[in-house]
């Protein structure tokens, strides 16, 4: 679908060009088309939404504890590492 992958980005990294090169140019190309058949979710629907206890209980039943998430990570050979949060560009440039 889209061919600008991180190899292209990293060539330009070190300045903002890397990620900016991924930008659409704001107008949007219309390349991505959503599938149809299921309704959207707009402000009106969100405002008029009624509490659904059954669905809430269902999502809560899927909760994973920290130890199981760790096992899931090990299965994917994911290794946690330390990394500091990135400062806001505005704050860090002051």
């Amino acid at each position: 679908m889209l061919n600008v992958r991180k190899e292209g980005m990293r060539k330009d990294s070190g300045d903002i060009g890397g990620l900016l090169s991924m930008a659409s140019g704001r107008a949007g190309t219309g390349k991505v088309v959503a599938t149809t058949g299921i309704r959207g979710l707009d402000e009106v629907e969100l405002k008029s939404a009624k509490y659904n206890e059954t669905e809430l209980n269902l999502v809560e039943s899927y909760a994973i504890n920290r130890a199981d998430a760790q096992l899931f990570a090990i299965q994917g050979k994911l290794v946690a590492r330390q990394f500091d949060y990135l400062p806001s560009p505005e704050v860090s440039s002051k």
Binding site: M1, K6, M22, G28, V32
Partner: peptide
């Protein structure tokens, strides 16, 4: 960033 790029390609 790659997800953002894809979303950016949606027509306005």
């Amino acid at each position: 960033p790659e997800v953002l790029q894809q979303i950016g390609h949606f027509a306005k």
